[in-house]
């Protein structure tokens, strides 16, 4: 039960996870079922799947924001109780405090660690520089573009130096060019100290370009994992250029083969739904 890193234990381990929700009409919706997944320390794992398959649900369970109805979440070998203190979570929606400036939003992340205001602000300024926002410290979130807000959020997560990064379609709301820039920024920052990453996306190309391993999820309800594909592309990678690599295409073809049927199934369900 100590917080120390158990050598060899995976950073995140989901064992037999099932998650169910009680709907408003008291019926139960089984979102995911029988999930076994391990993310090694320093490994970048992406989960792809059709919309609404429960990818984010898995992330919330790994973060401790959601209690699975069955199974165990282990963080570096220790069963997770309460919130996952060793993880940073990058949300899909805007999660910055709108009443704080970019600088204060990043600096406040150090307050729970008991770091003084002066030092926190100095380190926050340094982090804003690292994500390319040095001149934007005094801006409030509404004065920043969507991409800039994501950069602030990224700095807010990384300044705490978590051992695990959980990312829920973080670049989903951004335009194509900004997504590429953010992807490269993420890879650069990640390369510095290789944290374990669990990255959820519905964009297969993004998943292959970023990750060491791509996990494919089936369409819900009771979604499960139906594919585990290694991505042996060399690092460092450039998100834009790697898409032209023939090997990238081969991997894409393989994974898309298993994903396509699920996407069609999810789409058919969506069409059939009342």
């Amino acid at each position: 039960m100590t917080g120390s890193r158990d050598a060899g234990a995976p950073a995140v381990e989901l064992a037999g996870i099932a998650i169910a929700f009680t709907l408003s009409d008291r019926s139960t919706y089984r979102a995911v079922q029988g999930i076994d997944l391990q993310v090694a320390a320093g490994e970048f794992v992406a989960i792809v799947g059709p919309t609404g398959c429960g990818k984010s649900t898995l992330l919330n369970a790994s973060a401790g924001l959601l209690q699975p109805s069955a199974g165990t979440v282990r963080i570096f070998g220790t069963p997770l109780a309460g919130l996952n203190r060793r993880a940073g979570y990058l949300f899909q929606q805007d999660a910055l405090m709108p009443w704080k400036t970019a600088l204060d939003n990043v600096a406040v992340a150090l307050e729970p660690a008991g770091i003084g205001r002066g030092e926190a602000r100095a380190r926050a300024l340094e982090w804003l520089g690292r994500v390319g926002l040095k001149g934007f410290a005094d801006r409030y979130p509404h004065m920043l573009s969507g991409g800039q807000r994501k950069r602030v959020a990224l700095a807010q997560i990384l300044i705490r130096d978590p051992e695990i990064l959980l990312m829920d379609e973080p670049f989903g709301p951004l335009d194509a060019q900004t997504r590429q820039i953010m992807g490269n920024l993420l890879l650069d920052l990640w390369a510095a100290d290789r944290k374990a990453v669990l990255f959820v996306t519905h964009d297969l190309e993004e998943a292959i370009a970023l990750a060491d391993r791509v996990i494919v999820m089936s369409a819900g309800p009771a979604a499960g994992l139906i594919g585990d594909h290694p991505v042996p592309l060399a690092r460092p990678r450039d998100i834009a250029e790697i898409r032209l690599d023939p090997e990238f295409h081969a991997i894409h073809r393989t994974i898309w083969g298993s994903l396509r049927a699920e996407v069609q199934r999810a789409y058919a369900q969506g069409e059939a739904a009342p």
Binding site: L83, F91, R160
Partner: peptide, 10 residues
């Protein structure tokens, strides 16, 4: 989301 984020920040 803001609340969950703040909690995840510890």
């Amino acid at each position: 989301t803001v609340l969950a984020n703040a909690r995840m920040l510890g």
